[in-house]
Design a protein around this nucleic acid. Structure first.
Lengths: 382, 382
DNA sequence: AGCTATTAACTCGATTTCAAATTTAAGTGA
DNA sequence: TCACTTAAATTTGAAATCGAGTTAATAGCT
């Protein structure tokens, strides 16, 4: 494997502590011995770390599960009272925020609609306000905040740029601004990618090291986990498959180029449905019509699935993932959407088709992913 | 960053030694202090490691370069006599093999033509024979062998499978077979990916952590370096962009599907040129015709470049790489190929187009990459 | 020449981590 | 009840790594 970075002792120590906490969170009830085997550390060393984490209140010891044979292990659990993390997901029309405890269980959430064309300062204020609202209500210490926003992300500086859908979205200092207000580390990440994080740690991607999530909301993008790592690209702008050409798609209004996003995003789908109905259709109406078997609506859905299938096929042969996860409102339609999608993908594949599943998160996936991202990047301070 | 694996002490030690050697190889003349800063190790620790590597004959100390101020550092160089590595690249019609010394300098190479439809046992015999021929001629110890072959790769077992172009290419035990004959560790990797390795360590990708190489030979594939790591996919089958649909391409013979590979690989290009000429055209002839300004040939080239540009644009927005490198015979055509390619890519991009360059390796890129792969995976035995 | 500034390389006591041995806490069967 | 087995947790002495301080080697200046 090319140039894996060597870490200094301090980094290693913090990394081991973080990794221990992570493993206990992901699957509680582990013992020191089990962790030692998993991390290939000496049992004695693991003991030292675990003892410290227990002493500092991050882990708690439950009394021991019986075992067929041998001394029963003392089981470890994350201490929910150790602290909490916030996650917020902003996409042009909506703002979702969550608070999770130390074991990633949801403790609070909120949703706010955002007016179209809200200027950037207003957006930032609303993000702060939403975070404040999920922050209240318990006295656990706040440890870190994850923020999911559209566009390219400069993670080091906490800046967001270049979303086509928001004017003035350029070098917006999301990270520094929130860090100053809440006095904790803030991680900024693209919101399609945080949805992939949510899948990786809580959803359909648990235990996998190679998967692709295709997010279909106002725009279309992918979050890719390869070798267990999130792909961000050199400028934090990876995953913009919405810009891929879609030459086979039916023409939309003549001026715009035919891309995956202009022809087959949720926006494009709802617009097509609105045009067919002669009146504005929102997603709930669209869903209701689809579930009642409306032919026109189902045809629109199938048409879009056809386009998505092309992209999925391409991602499949490019990444050779273990699984491809469809994320976003369409995932909530179940077989109505997934069946035509799968059959279209299968038709294109000569070899084994990808394992294709729908996300099981609702709308809060992006915010949960942001919180999970913050949690997993967070290091127990020494 | 998700679940980075914690390493045991032994792994760390071997890893540090390998990393030190790597850095000295990539850029000679480094000092202990410089290496300590780069790896964030204590100078004392670095000293211990370097001393050991010098004692064991992997590094040699040159006397000290002057410095504006301060004690001049003892410069370190890889010891070319420490050992050598072999690399071999098999693609359906050709076999390239190289021997490199410990600092990755070429010491021997050879090329063999392989008859079309050569059965698998014959292929393996020819690979062994080519390796044997570059092995001879000096007495440095052989340390490891890298093998580049088409198809999906099971790296752990050293098996290759599933190339559409070779019948019977299924679970071929390349690694075990060569390991038994040559008694050294053998690394097997897909040959498009080894070409990316060659770029990463010796070519246009040096110093980058995010780039894409697009290889156009008999087939079309990509090798992607993301976060400094090579993407292989869950089954070692990543990068098969040759299977991407190419609906805009002109029709080839009616039966075959229109994919990037069927419409725009080197094979497809030469076939189109042959049809136009009414007689078989090989690449050297094609090249001569292109360089003499033959309109038909240039039109065929431009047509292909148009298709490649679509794929490059898609890879650009998907990976957000620092650079995209075109690899393979077409890269040798220089501006004749690159100019239409670049203009076509630019036409598709609304934002900044990718930095697009041609590989500077000749045909031995794959073999060199295989050797580099073996070298970088090799660990100084303890 | 002698002094100062600067950086490399080395030395050495303190700390971390390991591997092996020991202790602990159960179940099992005579 | 009491060995015997098994596996977790802990203890312990050895090996590794660190960080701070020391020495070495050079340039520039007086």
């Amino acid at each position: 494997m090319p140039s894996s970075r060597i870490k200094s002792k301090h980094q290693i120590v913090a990394g081991i502590e973080a990794e221990l906490l992570k493993r206990v969170r992901v699957e509680g009830g582990k013992s020191r011995a089990e962790l030692a085997r998993e991390l290939r550390l000496a049992p004695s060393t693991t003991g030292i770390y675990v003892d410290r984490l227990v002493r500092e209140g991050f882990l708690i010891e439950r009394d021991a599960a019986p075992l067929d044979t041998g001394r029963p292990p003392k089981q470890l659990e994350p201490n929910p009272a150790a602290g909490k993390f916030l996650g917020v997901d902003f996409e042009p029309q909506n703002l979702f925020a969550v608070a999770v405890d130390f074991s990633l269980h949801l403790v609070r959430r909120c949703h706010r609609a955002v007016p179209a064309n809200e200027p950037v300062p207003g957006i930032l204020r609303r993000i702060e306000e939403a975070l404040q609202s999920v922050l209240e209500g318990d006295r656990r210490p706040l440890l870190s905040i994850g923020v999911a926003v559209p566009g390219s992300i400069d993670q080091a500086k906490g800046l967001a740029s270049g979303s086509e859908l928001i004017s003035g979205w350029d070098n917006v200092p999301v990270g520094p601004r929130l860090a100053e207000k809440f006095k904790v580390p803030v991680r900024v990440q693209n919101n399609i990618r945080t949805m992939a994080m949510a899948e990786l740690w809580l959803g359909q991607g648990r235990g996998l090291t190679n998967f692709v999530s295709l997010g279909i909301r106002t725009g279309i993008g992918t979050g890719v986990i390869a070798n267990g790592q999130l792909l961000c690209g050199a400028q934090g702008g990876a995953g913009e498959v919405g810009l891929w050409p879609a030459p086979d798609a039916p023409a939309t209004d003549g001026n715009r180029e035919r891309t995956l996003e202009t022809t087959s995003s949720l926006g494009a789908i709802l617009q097509a449905a609105s045009e067919a109905a002669g009146k504005p259709v929102d997603f709930d109406q669209f869903r209701a019509q689809a579930e009642s078997g409306d032919r026109t609506v189902l045809a629109i859905l199938k048409q879009a699935a056809e386009q998505h299938a092309v992209a999925i096929y391409q991602l499949h042969v490019l990444f050779d993932p273990e699984r491809i996860i469809v994320v976003g409102p369409l995932a909530e339609l179940g077989a109505l959407y997934l069946a035509p999608l799968k059959s279209s993908v299968r038709r294109r594949c000569h070899r084994a088709p990808p394992e294709l599943v729908a996300s099981s998160f609702g709308q809060y996936g992006g915010a949960l992913g942001a919180a999970a991202f913050a949690l997993h990047e967070w290091l127990p301070s020494r």
